[in-house]
Design a protein around this nucleic acid. Structure first.
Lengths: 344, 344
DNA sequence: ATGAAAGCGCTAACAT
DNA sequence: ATGTTAGCGCTTTCAT
């Protein structure tokens, strides 16, 4: 059961090690007869040969490894999906993903970069748990990199983020199209790409339906269950027939308070959330209509963009003088219709 | 900005490459004066030297990489924590975790093993999303391996699993110690280590308090929200003053039904859950008292066990004739007290 | 079409 | 205490 090397395979197949290498790698640059190719393959199989990625990487100067750094996304429900998307896309390209979760700790992050550089990653994806503007760590300059669910205001790196504006518009339109005209918006109280973007989308959707924006319909709240709970009264104090909540957790809290106020969803008031945290939204009574975050797609686009990045880096030998700036790539947020919206 | 190698460092420091290697690695086997050591370090730092893990791995015959295969755990809330634990523990030992999520697909799993073997992983952790008995894939024989949150009935691999029995007992005792004596148990309808173990723990805790087991208090239900919802009536038909639910989701459903029946938690009836899915339990009204799954610990113990495994494998050169069988390692499930239990 | 041989960057005997 | 050198397993010119 000892290690079987290319050497062994070559010997067994009665060819030179070089030929064996070509055959095993199905190298199209070299024309070797199908017969030889098969002979080698067979030998490899019967010996139970496995490539040694370390040796190959060393010889070729690249590792097939893509680093994925997250600041905690791995432990959030949000997490898994973007990693999954990234992993799948990496896989499709013969790469493997090295995921590390720093929990937002800078020292861990630094060590992570070191580790990844040592392992000769071909590039790294730097992702944040909450969509926000960041100043990228300096280590990012040493290797092809792309930002996911966060962006650099100076545009020094490609970034892939959810399209909050479109998402906010989609959520609002879900209500508009059901016939609602007075739509409250329980928005997060703290400014962020999410709260700003969704508000912008809300306004845009309203405008598209020829409805004037009424700031009294926007009730600020903490973006969690308690915030939603607390916002219920203010919402009911308006004449809104529907509410767009900044996120599902807010909606969940709102549900609770609404119930206590003797109001029923969606009969008395329609609700739509945002995020599509399945764990929550799919199991509420009634199930919550919401807008999803394109997590999986974020991951996919992340590595796709990275790979493109790596490719071009090889072309222009001009080292790291790539001073161009990047526009963020916006990924659509899909509508998820369930039972919390009443058609008027 | 070109690649700087040990060679460069050695030259810059005016020593041989071997000396440089020793200095950089802080090799204790060789006594080299602190002065030389520092000299080399300085050279390395100023040149921006990074180890090349590929080369090192190739030369040393080991990669510092531990594979972590999960069948979907990465996208579940459960997931992150065990991976996090595994990652942290790996890190502490200078190893890095290569996580792959197969989503339970056998073909992906096979490719994953191939990939990991190619990358010369020192061992692999094979984990399941739900605690269950499995027949380990044959590839596991080719490398040191440990099972996490699942086990091989034949005991061919070390396994790390949650202690369901103790967990069930802990949950029950939470109620017992609050003074409850008639305790219903909404258990999962399908047999599994969880349902069987928790039931056993339930009985044991009762017995320890001198209470006879009454099978009419056990109401079977699907282990989800709907199951809990449906079980409410049956529970209220008993004279139980408290319910132990198979998991938090069941408890959540129960809450809903209870509310509709006009019953209040915990005043009319106390509830404890299981799993401590924070997303759910911490945000219920009232917050749910429950028993946690030791996910993080599972991860930690997983790699710790694996590392021990690797160690011994090096000692006995006896290849893979390790026919000993392993007892599962049971990890405690901690009580998480919140507000759903009333003291009688 | 295939073989010989020079590395890739590092480690670890073995010398000195 | 430190330098020499032979690999680790593979890729890839360059010959043949």
């Amino acid at each position: 059961m000892a290690k079987v090397t290319l050497q062994d395979v070559a010997k067994a197949a009665g060819v030179s090690i070089a030929t064996a290498s070509w055959a095993v790698n199905d190298n199209r640059n070299v024309r070797i007869p199908e017969s030889t190719r098969r002979k080698v393959r067979k030998a490899a199989d019967s010996l139970g040969y496995h490539h040694n990625a370390l040796a190959r990487g060393l010889a070729r100067g690249c590792s097939d490894i893509i680093g994925f750094i997250s600041d905690g996304v791995a432990t959030s429900p949000f997490a898994g999906q973007v990693i999954q998307g990234a992993q799948d896309e990496a896989w499709r390209n013969g790469k493997i993903l090295l995921v590390v979760n720093t929990n937002g700790k800078k020292d861990v992050e630094r060590k992570t970069f070191a580790f990844m550089l040592e392992h000769q990653v071909e590039g790294v994806i730097y992702s944040k748990w909450v969509h926000e503007s960041i100043t990228p760590p300096s280590e990012l300059d040493k290797v092809p990199a792309v930002l996911v669910n966060c962006y650099d205001e100076r545009g020094r790196f490609p970034a892939v983020v959810p399209n909050e504006v479109q998402g906010g518009a989609t959520a609002t339109r879900l209500l508009l199209e059901a016939g609602h005209r007075r739509i409250a918006f329980v928005n997060a109280i703290t400014p962020s790409p999410a709260s700003l973007g969704r508000l912008e989308g809300y306004k845009a959707a309203l405008a598209a339906f020829g409805i004037d924006f009424d700031s009294s319909l926007v009730v600020p709240a903490n973006a969690d269950q308690e915030g939603g709970y607390g916002a219920a009264e203010k919402v009911m104090a308006t004449d809104a027939t529907a509410v767009f909540c900044h996120n599902d957790r807010t909606a969940l809290g709102l549900y609770d308070a609404l119930r206590e106020l003797g109001k029923r969803v969606p009969d008395d008031i329609s609700v739509v959330g945002f995020d599509n945290q399945e764990m929550i939204s799919a199991h509420m009574h009634p199930a919550l209509t919401t807008v999803g975050l394109p997590q999986y797609e974020l991951g996919v686009m992340g590595v796709r963009t990275l790979l493109r990045q790596c490719g071009r880096n090889e072309d222009d030998g001009d080292e790291h003088v790539v001073t161009r700036t990047f526009e963020p790539i916006f990924v659509q947020c899909p509508a998820v219709s369930r039972d919390s919206v009443k058609r008027l």
